[in-house]
Design a protein around this nucleic acid. Structure first.
Length: 485
RNA sequence: GGCACGUUGGAGAAGCGGUUUAACUCACCAGCCUUUCACGCUGGCAUUCACGGGUUCGAAUCCCGUACGUGUCACCA
C-alpha cells in the first residue's frame, strides 16, 4: 500500500486564519492516521502580498498546536527547498516543457489590454486567447524584442474534464468554462495554479487537502497532471468555515465575526488544545462515537475522510467557550492557578488577599483565563452597593435583618482565629442555629456585605477567606454603617 | 450572469431505503443540589429532515425540478 503524503501549503500573506489551521490539522491528521508523511511548504510566489513575519507566525502556530512536520522550512528534507521562491527556476523549466508539448503558450498581452477585456465584460469575462495561436516565428520575434510575457495553459476548447474528490465525489466541468490561466507570470514567478501542481508532484504528495474554494478550479490542475503525464493525486476538499453575522446571515468567516486568527484566539484566552479540538469537529465527525473531547493522539487514531462533511459549518464561539472551559476544568488546580494568579495579581495588587483561593474558586467558573479578571472586579475595589441587594426573596432577607445579622456576627468573626473557609462556615452555621435565623439568610447578608455584588464566584465564607480577616471585617464595618441603625 | 457545490432544531451534527415516535454536544428553558453564581445531576427543546413532484409495500435516506445559500470565474492563493 502506498504511503500517504499530505502537505500544508500556506501563503505568507497574513496571519494564521482559523480555517487555514483547520486545513493544516486535517492534512496532518490524514497523514498521521495513515502512518504517512506531512510536509510544510511555503507558497510565496506573490511577492507583492508578502507580509513580513508571516512565515514565523505559521511555523509557530504549528509548533503551539503540536502539528509537527516531517519535511519543511527549518528542518529541510529530501524534497527541498520548501519555499517556492527558492525553487523559481524549477517552474520555468516545467512551463517550457508544457509549451513544447503544446499544452501551454507564450502570451505577450499587456496588463492594460487584459484590464480592458475585464472591464468590457463587466468583470465576468476571461482572457480572449489572443496569443493562443501565435506562430513560432511570431513568438520568436516577440521574445527577441525582449517583450515581457507570461506562459498560459492551453485548455482544450471542447470536452469535459472530471475528477473524483474524496469528499464531494465526482466533479465535472466543461472545458469551455475554463480560462487559459497563467502558469508563469511576467516577473518570472509561477502562479499558485502552476507551482502547487509541480511541487505536489515533485514532493510526492498523494493527497491534496485544501478548502472547497478550489473545487471548481481543480479540473484545470488535473489537466496539468495529464499534460505532464503525471499520476493525479487524491483530492480532499474541505467544507468552508462560516461566521454568523448580526443579522443572522452567514458568510465566510472573517474579522467582523470576531477573533479569527489563531493568534487572536490565544490573545482572547483560548488554549491551543481547546482550539484544535473544537475545529477538528467543525466539518468532521467521528464514526460510531459520541466523544467530543479528544487529544491529538486520539484524533490520529480515529480520523478518516469518510467523516468529513460537505456542507459548510458556522464557527460558534459559544461552543469554543465550552471546549475551553472543559480543558480548564480538566487541568489540575495547581496548573490552573499558575495561569490565573498572575492575572489576578495584576488586577488586585492589594496585599493580604488570598489569590490562590480566588483562583481555585474561578477554576470551574471561567471559560477563558482572561474572563477571570472581569469576574474579580469586586475584589479589586469596593463596588458601589444598592441596599436593595440585601433583600433576597428566597432567603427572606431584608436590609434590617441583614443589619442585625452583621451586627451580631461581627464580634464573633473578630474573635475568630482560624480564618479559612471551613472554620468560618462552621462559625456562621453555628450562629444561624443559635439565633434561629436561616443559614442561607446569614450567608446572604455576609456575602453581600463583603463582596458588595449580587453574583460572585464563591460564597460568603469562601470570599472572606480570599479577602483575609482585616479586609473582611472592614467591609462588614462599612456595610453596617451604610445600613444605618 | 455562467459554472460548481451545499440545504437535518438557534449552532456543530449522527443518520447511507424499513424497531427513527430523527442519536449526541453546545446554547436555551425548567427542576434538583447548594453559602449567591458556577460545577454536577435530572428533564424539556425537529410529529419532522428547504420546498414540490416522482420511484417504492415503505424515503431524511434514491431520482427530477424549484427556492435559498455559498464558492468560483486574477500576472491572489
Amino acid at each position: 500500500m502506498t504511503e500517504i503524503v499530505t502537505r500544508f501549503a500556506p501563503s505568507p500573506t497574513g496571519f494564521m486564519h482559523i480555517g487555514n489551521l483547520r486545513t493544516a490539522l486535517y492534512a496532518w491528521l490524514l497523514a498521521r492516521a495513515g502512518n504517512g508523511k506531512f510536509i510544510v511548504r511555503i507558497e510565496d510566489t506573490d511577492q507583492v502580498r508578502l507580509v513580513e513575519g508571516a512565515v514565523d507566525v505559521i511555523l509557530q502556530t504549528l509548533r503551539q498546536t503540536g502539528l509537527n512536520y516531517d519535511e519543511g522550512p527549518g528542518i529541510g528534507g529530501p524534497n527541498g527547498p520548501y519555499v517556492q521562491s527558492e525553487r523559481k527556476e524549477i517552474y520555468r523549466k516545467y512551463a517550457e516543457e508544457l509549451v513544447a508539448k503544446g499544452h501551454a503558450y507564450y502570451c505577450f498581452c499587456t496588463a492594460e489590454r487584459l484590464q480592458q477585456l475585464h472591464d468590457e465584460s463587466d468583470g465576468v469575462g476571461g482572457y480572449d486567447r489572443h496569443c493562443r495561436n501565435l506562430s513560432a516565428d511570431e513568438v520568436a520575434t516577440h521574445l527577441a524584442n525582449g517583450e515581457p510575457y507570461v506562459i498560459r495553459q492551453k485548455i482544450p476548447l471542447e470536452g469535459v474534464t472530471s475528477y473524483v474528490d474524496e469528499v464531494f465525489g465526482e466533479i465535472s466541468m466543461e472545458n469551455k468554462e475554463m480560462q487559459d490561466q497563467i502558469l508563469l507570470k511576467a516577473d518570472g514567478y509561477p502562479t499558485y495554479n502552476f507551482a502547487h501542481v509541480v511541487d505536489d508532484y515533485l514532493m510526492g504528495v498523494t493527497h491534496v487537502v485544501r478548502g472547497s474554494e478550489y473545487l471548481t478550479s481543480t479540473p484545470k490542475y488535473v489537466l496539468l497532471y495529464d499534460a505532464f503525464g503525471w499520476p493525479r493525486p487524491h483530492y480532499v476538499h474541505l467544507p468552508l468555515l462560516m461566521g454568523q453575522n448580526e443579522d443572522g446571515k452567514i458568510s465566510k468567516l472573517s474579522k467582523r465575526h470576531g477573533a479569527v486568527s489563531f493568534q487572536d484566539l490565544l490573545q482572547a484566552g483560548y488554549l491551543p488544545q481547546a482550539i484544535v479540538n473544537y475545529i477538528a469537529l467543525l466539518g468532521w465527525c467521528p464514526k460510531d462515537c459520541n466523544q467530543e473531547i479528544f487529544t491529538l493522539e486520539e484524533l490520529c487514531k480515529i480520523f478518516s475522510i469518510e467523516g468529513i462533511s460537505k456542507s459548510p459549518s458556522v464557527f460558534d464561539y459559544g461552543k469554543l467557550n465550552w471546549f475551553n472551559s472543559e480543558y480548564i476544568k480538566q487541568m489540575p488546580e495547581q496548573t490552573c492557578a499558575e495561569r490565573i494568579v498572575p492575572l489576578l495579581r495584576q488586577k488586585c495588587p492589594a496585599p493580604g488577599l488570598c489569590l490562590d483561593k480566588l483562583a481555585a474558586l474561578l477554576h470551574t467558573r471561567v471559560c477563558t483565563f482572561n474572563e477571570a479578571t472581569e469576574m474579580v472586579d469586586f475584589v479589586a475595589e469596593r463596588l458601589p452597593l444598592d441596599l436593595a441587594a440585601y433583600t433576597n426573596k428566597k432567603n427572606k432577607t431584608t436590609p434590617e435583618l441583614c443589619r442585625q445579622i452583621l451586627a451580631e456576627v461581627q464580634p464573633k468573626l473578630a474573635a475568630c482565629q482560624d480564618w479559612q473557609n471551613d472554620a468560618l462556615f462552621a462559625l456562621l452555621k453555628a450562629y444561624a442555629e443559635a439565633s434561629g435565623i436561616k443559614a442561607g439568610a446569614v450567608m446572604w447578608a455576609v456575602r453581600i456585605a463583603v463582596a458588595r455584588k449580587l453574583v460572585t464566584p464563591g460564597g460568603a465564607t469562601e470570599l472572606m477567606e480570599v479577602f483575609g480577616k482585616e479586609e473582611s471585617l472592614s467591609r462588614i464595618e462599612q456595610a453596617l454603617q451604610e445600613l444605618g441603625d
